[in-house]
């Protein structure tokens, strides 16, 4: 864990102005990701987990307001000129998405699309870049890469397309790979293959990987650390084992309790639904669904503080720690 921090967010915020008011999608996030580690970012739909990373990549629609700081190897991305962003994107930070088909150009051969990606950032002849592309396809486990490079996206299955996306993402040896629900659209047996490739990239290339997912099982399998989000804020974070063993935030506890498991006769849902982010509840946003909420929760925004091996943003984290998942 002594590797250097390559991606760092400080008080990162994203707001979308709408006719009905500002949607405060991300409300001050801190995160450090080190080379060679996989950090899982979990949360339900609308928690702001994807928006955070689309925001730092500069991929949000015009009008989205971003503030705070996001640095990659010391380069500040928030408010950076297009030229800087273009150099960082794809070269230092690469991103893969849930739906690889919509991220690939249907009218170009796979090999060509990877070559384009390589030549956008490195001066290399077309022929050399094609050789490199074929090598990359081989690295991500695509059989007969030379033949496959001449095919179009529609000739690939979902799992194979996701491999192509990964090949493209690692083409320029980025320091950070952001994977946004990379296996959600895939079958479990294929998901297992893709997760294995991500782990290989982590260990062989010492890349820092951010894995955005709603699947707590996927995080348990591959992540080193995990960061739980709710209503645009981090509610709890720490090493994976500690978070699953003795979560101290009621939201994390609730999530783990709502999953089916052996010997659990009755599931325990979290009551209510996520808040409207135009006017999120005062204080702790989770308090309206929280079984442990007290008066103070509506007055004070809880900040992350150390509770055992974890950091938790709950006023009652110390007492709740013993409750268990």
């Amino acid at each position: 864990m002594t590797n250097e921090v390559v991606l760092s967010l400080r008080d990162f915020r994203v707001t979308f102005p709408t006719l009905f008011g500002d949607v405060q999608a991300v409300r001050g996030i801190d995160l450090d990701v080190r080379a060679g580690e996989i950090v899982g970012v979990v949360g339900e739909s609308g928690s702001g987990k994807s928006v955070t990373f689309l925001g730092l990549m500069g991929l949000l629609p015009k009008g989205a307001r971003i503030s705070g700081s996001a640095t990659v190897n010391g380069t500040e991305l928030v408010g950076a000129p297009r030229q800087v962003l273009r150099e960082v994107r794809g070269r230092k930070v690469a991103m893969i998405f849930q739906d690889p088909l919509s991220a690939l150009n249907p009218t170009h051969r796979i090999g060509h699309q990877i070559v384009e990606m390589i030549r956008a950032h490195q001066s290399m002849s077309k022929a050399a870049a094609m050789e490199r592309a074929i090598e990359l396809l081989n690295d991500v486990g695509i059989p007969q890469p030379r033949e496959r490079a001449r095919q179009y996206p529609h000739e690939f299955s979902g799992g194979m397309r996701q491999r192509v996306m990964i090949a493209m993402a690692i083409a320029n040896d980025p320091d950070v790979l952001i994977a946004d629900e990379p296996t959600t659209a895939l079958d479990v047996t294929v998901q297992a293959q893709i997760l294995e490739i991500l782990q290989k990239i982590q260990s062989e290339r010492q890349a820092a990987i951010v894995l955005i997912t709603h699947d707590l099982g996927v995080v348990a399998r591959v992540a080193d650390r995990v960061q739980g989000m709710y209503a645009g804020r981090v509610v709890e974070r720490g090493p994976v084992a500690a978070l699953y063993d003795h979560p101290s935030h009621p939201y994390t506890q609730g999530l783990l309790r709502s999953l089916p498991s052996v010997g659990r006769d009755r599931l325990v849902p979290i009551p209510g639904s996520p808040p409207n982010m135009i006017e999120p509840p005062s204080g702790c946003a989770f308090r309206v669904r929280c079984p442990h909420a007290i008066d103070r929760c509506s007055l004070e925004v809880p900040t992350l503080r150390v509770v055992g091996d974890l950091e938790s943003a709950c006023l009652r984290a110390d007492e709740l720690r013993s409750v268990g998942p």
Binding site: T189, Q191, L195, D215, G217, V219, A220, R221, A241, Y244
Partner: peptide, 10 residues
């Protein structure tokens, strides 16, 4: 292949 939400088991 199903991921189990328990790092120890996984």
């Amino acid at each position: 292949a199903i991921p189990v939400p328990d790092p120890g088991v996984e």
